[in-house]
């Protein structure tokens, strides 16, 4: 091309000499972090260009918080105002799950594009193309969690845990969303199509949120269901959020919730990386 042949610049440089022994055999931790940040940067650029990615995190908290509070408030707690301390942490956990669910479909769509061929051919950590978008997605979790709490306050919710407790619940929600996102990331790497990811994700999301103590007290359920609700990690996150936001206390439930999150990441992150590395 003319621009090349007439270019007054130094010629295109290539490394002619190769000493294989000088090459690193695996990426260092620091390189992995840098590469993850670069991938997160890419994901934020994409978010800016596809603002519809923010529809779910803005509209859902507004809609669901008001909807659930007014529908169930009277029946479960006697009044909407009395229901708010129960439902707001519940909606927070539900929002965390539904917003992080998008990770799987997004990744699946992304992986079908040509640019992932280049990512695979580059000498970069295999986890970077997965961890980068997950990191950028934290922005969406922050928006969703913040809006949910604000809608609650607008409806008359006064968190008993004060500013610090509320901040703690907000932070736990985001940590939980980021951790659970690894389940959907893994799904994105194993499923054949974005539609499949979407379908499977819904089947995971609905039981996890509704078969928890997010909307109703666990004690009101039949025994066998109560047993499941009590081991459901989402229940632990919800209870931990209630303890933080309503009481301002860091209880054992907070520890259990964090431990559950860590377990999810420890299981699904390696699975996701493994299946991503194998994917054609």
């Amino acid at each position: 091309m003319t621009a090349v042949t007439e270019s007054p610049q130094a010629p295109l440089a290539v490394r002619a000499a190769v000493v294989p022994e000088d090459l690193a055999s695996r990426p260092s931790l620091r390189e992995t972090v840098d590469q993850t940040l670069a991938m997160a940067w890419r994901a934020t650029k994409k978010m800016r260009r596809n603002p519809e990615q923010f529809f779910d995190v803005t509209i859902q908290p507004l809609l669901f918080t008001a909807m659930f509070a007014y529908i169930f408030g009277g029946a479960i707690s006697g009044s909407v105002k009395d229901y708010l301390p129960l439902i707001i942490p519940g909606i927070l956990a539900q929002t965390a799950l539904t917003t992080c669910m998008a990770m799987g479909t997004q990744l699946r769509e992304d992986m079908d594009k040509g640019v992932f061929d280049r990512f695979r051919s580059l000498p970069i950590a295999r986890i970077a193309p997965l961890a980068g978008p997950a990191l950028a997605d934290v922005i969406r979790y922050m928006i969703a969690a913040t809006l949910t709490i604000l809608v609650g306050i607008a409806m008359g919710f006064r968190p008993g845990g004060g500013v610090l407790g509320t901040l703690g619940g907000w932070l736990l929600t985001i940590v939980a969303a980021w951790s659970l996102a690894w389940i959907f990331t893994w799904l994105g790497t194993v499923a054949r199509s974005a539609q499949a990811v979407q379908g499977i994700s819904m089947m995971i999301m609905f039981p996890l949120t509704f078969l928890s103590n997010a909307f109703v007290p666990a004690e009101s359920l039949p025994g066998w269901l109560e047993a499941f609700v009590k081991v459901n990690p989402v229940s632990h996150v919800v209870t931990a959020c209630r303890d933080l936001i309503n009481e301002g206390q860091v209880t054992a439930e907070v520890g259990w919730a964090l431990l559950g999150c860590a377990a999810v990441v420890a299981i699904f992150a390696p699975l996701a990386v493994r299946s991503y590395s194998r994917k054609i």
Binding site: S25, R42, G114, D117, R118
Partner: peptide, 17 residues
């Protein structure tokens, strides 16, 4: 990982974002 440091791959379908 070493092999990837020695290669530049330009695909049949442009691999850019």
């Amino acid at each position: 990982h070493r092999v990837r440091q020695l290669l530049g791959v330009t695909g049949q379908y442009a691999s850019v974002d």
